[in-house]
Write a protein that binds this DNA or RNA. Structure first.
Length: 359
DNA sequence: AACATTCTCAACCGCGGTGAT
DNA sequence: TATCACCGCGGTTGAGAATGT
């Protein structure tokens, strides 16, 4: 292990803090404050680096620290906030008084492991069941409320997540796509997973226009940075005119709300072409919350990045207004010729998901 | 009881942003 | 403008505790 750049001096102690060190730090901070952390160790008589002192104070010694298990309300809030801002733990922590980013991060990471192992085990077990009678998707219905978006790092996490995703798609796709007994192989290279998937045909359709990215909250985070193999495969399938592999059209955007761990009003379903309305209502809720969060953050941090942020936000709004109209959604019903036409015309984007992702 | 495995969480590391010079 | 020091953040590690076999 290396050392902090601020810890190059000799005599810098590392590792767990002793009660004596804690006492020294508390005494110093409570009497002098912590204007400059780099000065704290020396003035407090600690053989630590300022960074370590800061960390110890913020994560452990602060008087307003709230310890103990997370409440259900806190958990819900964390989930909601994480769905919006991702792994911005400090941001999330700012909405949970007394909780630290480190604590939330730790909680989330251990929580993810738990939640992932369960459905992954279920997925493994499911592969032994009959393909004609696939088990319900364990991550999509009520349980999906506890499945965080895959906004976490690590190859191991991705592998485990893939296992879940695989099971989602296998159980949700029509036989041809899922690969039944007598079905032809699915699209070459097509992985059997698609938990919540948005596909923009305008990037591959007749027009070939490249669309701005969809709202980040709608896409699994790992797709933000990596081209999912399914995208390429699906694109190839489209180019090869293999429409029968397409998942059927979803009736409405309420499905998406459910799949995205967000609740739309009861009965708020829309026909596929009207789906953009549902999308709007749903996504505007998301955006409103995000904007509120950002505004609060701005109030706290000043206006340093205001301009830049609004430029970025403007881009998102542009996508909303211009691109949402190109969305179609697909579910378990038979793909109709009109649906197919609309899609193949290149004028619409696709959003499809497993049947259990929306109930 | 002994050992292995898993979990928790405090602490560290490295990077990016910011302000001072 | 370039450089530096500092701060804050997110990712990661590892020791100890808890749990399972």
């Amino acid at each position: 292990m290396g050392h902090h750049s601020c810890c190059n001096q000799q005599k810098v102690k590392r590792g767990l803090w002793s009660p004596e060190e804690d006492e020294k730090l508390i005494r110093y901070i409570t009497t002098h404050g912590y204007g400059c952390w780099s000065e704290v160790p020396e003035k407090a008589g600690l053989q630590r680096c300022g960074k370590s002192c800061r960390l110890r104070w913020i994560n452990y010694l602060r008087p307003d620290i709230r310890r103990g298990r997370f409440t259900a309300e806190e958990e819900k809030l964390i989930i909601s906030l994480h769905a919006i801002v991702g792994n911005r733990w400090a941001h999330i922590a700012s909405h949970l008084p007394g909780r630290t980013d480190n604590e939330i991060k730790n909680y989330w990471n251990s929580w993810i492991k738990k939640k992932i192992r369960k459905p992954a085990a279920a997925a493994a077990a499911a592969t032994t069941t009959s393909p004609n009678n696939p088990p319900p998707c364990s991550t999509a219905t009520s349980d999906h409320h506890h499945l965080p978006p895959p906004a976490f790092g690590g190859a191991d996490h991705h592998l485990q997540l893939d296992a879940i995703i695989n099971q989602n798609l296998i159980s949700s796709l029509p036989p041809k796509l899922a690969g039944g007994d007598d079905s032809p192989p699915a699209v070459p290279g097509l992985p059997h997973h698609c938990p919540l998937f948005m596909f923009d045909t305008t990037t591959t359709g007749a027009g070939g226009a490249v669309s701005p990215p969809p709202p980040s909250s709608l896409i699994p985070t790992h797709l933000h940075h990596h081209h999912h193999p399914f995208i390429a495969s699906f694109t190839a399938a489209m180019a090869a005119d293999t429409p029968s592999y397409l998942p059927p059209l979803v009736d409405g955007m309420a499905a998406m709300g459910a799949a995205m761990d967000c609740s739309l009003e009861d009965g708020q379903t829309a026909a596929a072409m009207a789906a953009t309305n549902g999308y709007y209502q749903h996504h505007q809720k998301h955006q409103q919350l995000e904007i509120e969060l950002e505004e609060e953050e701005q109030r706290q941090l000043g206006h340093h990045h205001h301009q830049h942020h609004h430029e970025h936000e403007h881009e998102n709004h542009q996508w909303d207004e211009e691109e949402a109209q190109h969305l179609l959604m697909w579910d378990q019903e038979v793909l109709t010729s009109s649906n197919l036409e609309a899609m193949q015309s290149g004028a619409h984007s696709l959003l499809f998901m497993g049947p259990n992702d929306h109930d």
